[in-house]
Every structure is written in structure tokens, then in C-alpha cells.
């Protein structure tokens, strides 16, 4: 089974994000996404219409990565696991023009992109047209639009996931709305592509993975589906996010310098070949001088190289 993930740990200025991460580690989460929430990526002018001007551009904070020592991730190390930190950007989708702003590099630098649509039209746009990873809702308040099955099934096909944030349900005033909205999401998605995450504002908002799976039971998921919601579906969501950096999700190209040490073996065979080729070049002149013996293939390859390249 995939590792337990919490894809929504809110990064807030006055509350320590590290504490929330430590709590997540203690409870057994192996994949965590630190969420930067910006309500509006465009600046509104006085008349209420959004417009983007170079001088009034909203500053998007850089992706957050918390430094953790070996001691901090001790709970996971003991089980032989490690914490993977991802960065996530969430914004409220209240205007179609915001999508153009979201395609710029500072927002695309985040690992995961999430939107919270405010109208039915924008929900349809989020499901079918734009390249985002997660669709969230303001789950503590009444949903202002209907969730129609057609755009939802299109979203499921594309790999977009729907998020249920459970920390809203802990306030007794919003518990009913939380369950009602969660049930709505469940009815329309049939449990597919649903992820449940904490949306933790403080460390005590996070719950353990088995408890979150029980929450899934409460809102209508079957047992295997509710376990998937915090593990397999989150993993699928992250993989879908990776396709944004690939060419039509078929090929991805990176610079060799970005390759991690443990992945170097994947290009070793290529490198061996390249080094042998360059090795041949340098020894070419030496071979012409000295009459060293080559196998039958060598002179042929030298000839070809001079013709082809």
C-alpha cells in the first residue's frame, strides 16, 4: 500500500509549520505537502474588475521547505521510512483570468496546484480545461453551486482530484455543513479521486491516518476506498502533478545536474558508451602513430563517426 499522505498542511506566518510537520511525523505520515494559500492572484481595482499590471502584481511566496534533522524524523526512521516534503499552492478561483496568471513560473514552481472554484462555471472550467491537480471546497460553509456529474467524471478521467479538508469539521458549528458537503462530493464522485487532508492551521488539527480513514467511513466511503483516500489517491495526485513537467506525459527532460546520486545508475550505460566514444577519439591519433591492434569493429566505427557527425 502507498504511504500515508497529508497533502494540506497550511503554512501560516504566525504558527510554526515545523511543529505541524513534527506532529504529522509522530502520527505516521510519510508524504506531506505544505500549502501556501493565496486568496487572489490578481489585484482588483476599485471597480471590482480584476486586472494585472506589472506594478500591482501579487507577490507569490516561494515554495516552503522545512529543514528537519535526523532526530526530528526519528519516528519514521525507526520504521525505515522517511518524510517527503512537497510544496502546494492553493488559490480561490473567482475569475477566469486568474488561470493565465497561474501559468507563470512562480506558481508553476510549486509541486501541486489547487484551486477553490466559487461558481459553477468556474468549477466546470477547473474540471475540464485547466491543468491543475486538486479541486478544493470551502467545506465549512454551504456550497454555492451544484456539483454536476458530467464535469466531475471528466475531471476523474483527466486525473484531477477532489479534496475534503477535515479540520473544518472539528468546530461544532460547522460539523453539519462539513458532513453535508462531504456527502455531496462523495455522491458525485462515487469515492473516486477523493483525497482527505487536514488543512491544519495548528498542530492539534492533524489526526492519525487510521482516524482519517474512519472519517471516510463517516462520509460514505467504503473501507478500502477510505484508506485509498489518504494513501493511493494522494500518490496518484502527486504523479499527476509530475506530468505537468513532462511533454504530454510521455517524456520528461531534465538537466543531468538535477539527477540525484541514487538515480545515477539509470544513465550509467549511456555514459559508459559516451566515455568510450570520447576515449576512442583521444586514442585515434595515438593509434595512427603506433601500430596497436584493434578489433575488427574499431576502424569501422571510426570511419562512420567521421562521416556521420
Amino acid at each position: 500500500m502507498a504511504a500515508f499522505s497529508d497533502l494540506n498542511i497550511l503554512h501560516m506566518e504566525n504558527v510554526s509549520t515545523k511543529e505541524k510537520l513534527l506532529m504529522a511525523i509522530k502520527l505516521g505520515y510519510e508524504v506531506v505537502a505544505i500549502n501556501n494559500y493565496v486568496e487572489n492572484v490578481l489585484v482588483k481595482d476599485d471597480k471590482g474588475k480584476s486586472k494585472k499590471e506589472p506594478s500591482k502584481v501579487v507577490e507569490i511566496p516561494a515554495p516552503v521547505k522545512v529543514h528537519l534533522t535526523e532526530r526530528d524524523i526519528g519516528d519514521l526512521k525507526v520504521k525505515g521510512a522517511s518524510l517527503k516534503q512537497l510544496s502546494r499552492f492553493t488559490t480561490v478561483l473567482s475569475d477566469p483570468g486568474q488561470w493565465r496568471r497561474m501559468q507563470e513560473d512562480d506558481i508553476q514552481a510549486y509541486d501541486l496546484l489547487a484551486v477553490q472554484p466559487t461558481t459553477e462555471k468556474l468549477f466546470h472550467m477547473a474540471c475540464t480545461a485547466i491543468e491543475i491537480d486538486i479541486i478544493t471546497f470551502n467545506i465549512g460553509d454551504k456550497l454555492t453551486y451544484y456539483l454536476k456529474p458530467a464535469p466531475v467524471s471528466k475531471a476523474i478521467e483527466r486525473g484531477v482530484h477532489f479534496e475534503i479538508v477535515y479540520s473544518e469539521g472539528f468546530h461544532s458549528s460547522s460539523r453539519r455543513t462539513f458532513i453535508a458537503n462531504a456527502l455531496r462530493i462523495m455522491h458525485v464522485t462515487h469515492g473516486k479521486n477523493v483525497i482527505i487532508s487536514s488543512g491544519a492551521r495548528e498542530a492539534m488539527d492533524v489526526r492519525g491516518p487510521y482516524d482519517v480513514a474512519n472519517l471516510g467511513l463517516l462520509i460514505g466511503l467504503q473501507e478500502p476506498q477510505s484508506k485509498d483516500a489518504i494513501s493511493t489517491n494522494s500518490r496518484a495526485c502527486v504523479l499527476h502533478a509530475n506530468t505537468r513537467h513532462s511533454v504530454k506525459s510521455v517524456i520528461s527532460v531534465r538537466s543531468s545536474s538535477e539527477l540525484k546520486a541514487e538515480d545515477q545508475w539509470t544513465v550509467e550505460a549511456c555514459r559508459k558508451e559516451a566515455s568510450e566514444e570520447s576515449g576512442d577519439d583521444s586514442s585515434e591519433s595515438a593509434a595512427e602513430e603506433a601500430d596497436s591492434s584493434f578489433d575488427a569493429a574499431r576502424p569501422e566505427s571510426k570511419r562512420r563517426r567521421m562521416d556521420g557527425v
Binding site: 513532462s246 517524456i251 531534465r254 549511456c270
Partner: peptide
């Protein structure tokens, strides 16, 4: 699959190929 070419590492996802 992966291969390297002139300082670029290319990853091919066979499922879509």
C-alpha cells in the same frame, strides 16, 4: 526508460509510448 544525451536526462514513460 531513461537515457542521457549531451547533459540532458530523458525519461520515457513506456505506458504512453
Amino acid at each position: 526508460f531513461t537515457f542521457e544525451l549531451e547533459g540532458h536526462v530523458v525519461t520515457l514513460y513506456g505506458k504512453h509510448f
